[in-house]
Computed example of a mutant assay.
Amino acid sequence: MSQEEMVKEAVEEAKKAAGEAAQEEVPEPAESKKEAEEAAEEMLGEAEELDGTQEENQDSEEEQEPKKKKFFEKKPKKDKKDEKIEELTDKLTRQMAEFDNYRKRTEKEKSAMYEIGAKDVVEKILAVVDNFERGLQSVPEEEKDAPFMQGMDKIYKQLMTTLEEIGVKPIEAVGQEFNPDFHNAVMHVEDEGFGENIVAEEFQKGYTYRDSVVRHSMVKVAN
């Protein structure tokens, strides 16, 4: 017998007992009888609702059962050949990444070595340029038009053009504001003709190679 049938039977028995008691004893008011019937109907409704909830819970458990079975099912094992292919593929990928990192690191080191070597060579050539300029400046004005001096001047200009083509450039100094990144102040002078912290004279030219300083300018700074 279901729960709903049991409740119905209990309600009927309650109604029957209430009727018999009403006949044997003092008749109950109509309102009391009505309240008893409403209470019985309310009990019947609650029983039906409870029975429906149990059925829903049972359906829900039945729906979840395949999911539980699926969760605990053993996954199919991969074929050994596929596992080996995946292992070799992963190994090859890692080796290619390591090789690419090695190539980039080697290129960077080679570039740094080239820069260091080139700067060292440029610095040595600058000593020759200094002597060239001193020699040309020491020539008297009346001898500068001589064929020999004109030839030396052309060689000097060719040398400077070649240095500029490879990235060597002189640092601007006289008339510029003193900059410790490019200038080396070896003397200070009070001169109203120059502004505050302005380079008044250059004793030795400075040069840069590819935006890095090879040699700072030795200068005299005003004020």
Results as ranks from 00 to 15, higher is better:
residue 125 I to E: 00
residue 98 E to Q: 10
residue 113 M to H: 06
residue 12 E to L: 15
residue 172 E to P: 14
residue 190 E to C: 04
residue 131 N to C: 05
residue 204 Q to K: 14
residue 111 S to W: 10
residue 17 A to P: 00
residue 59 D to P: 02
residue 100 D to L: 06
residue 141 E to R: 01
residue 30 A to Y: 02
residue 9 E to I: 08
residue 97 A to S: 10
residue 218 M to V: 09
residue 63 E to W: 11
residue 198 I to H: 02
residue 183 H to P: 08
residue 140 P to I: 03
residue 163 L to Q: 01
residue 213 V to M: 06
residue 123 E to K: 03
residue 209 Y to R: 02
residue 28 E to M: 15
residue 151 G to R: 08
residue 143 E to P: 05
residue 187 M to E: 14
residue 154 K to L: 08
residue 173 A to N: 07
residue 149 M to Q: 10
residue 208 T to W: 04
residue 137 Q to G: 11
residue 171 I to C: 09
residue 40 A to E: 09
residue 131 N to K: 09
residue 89 T to M: 14
residue 104 K to S: 03
residue 117 G to S: 12
residue 165 E to T: 13
residue 23 Q to A: 15
residue 222 A to Y: 05
residue 109 E to L: 15
residue 32 S to E: 13
residue 50 L to G: 09
residue 51 D to Q: 11
residue 7 V to P: 00
residue 210 R to S: 03
residue 19 G to R: 04
residue 119 K to S: 15
residue 65 E to M: 15
residue 152 M to H: 02
residue 109 E to G: 03
residue 118 A to T: 14
residue 69 K to P: 00
residue 166 I to S: 02
residue 126 L to C: 02
residue 1 M to W: 04
residue 75 K to M: 08
residue 187 M to L: 13
residue 80 K to A: 13
residue 18 A to G: 04
residue 181 D to I: 12
residue 56 E to V: 13
residue 13 E to C: 08
residue 88 L to M: 09
residue 72 F to N: 09
residue 84 K to Y: 10
residue 2 S to L: 10
residue 197 N to H: 13
residue 104 K to T: 07
residue 48 E to D: 07
residue 104 K to P: 00
residue 115 E to T: 11
residue 105 R to S: 14
residue 70 K to Y: 07
residue 200 A to T: 05
residue 213 V to F: 10
residue 156 Y to W: 04
residue 107 E to A: 08
residue 214 V to M: 07
residue 185 A to H: 08
residue 145 D to C: 08
residue 58 Q to P: 00
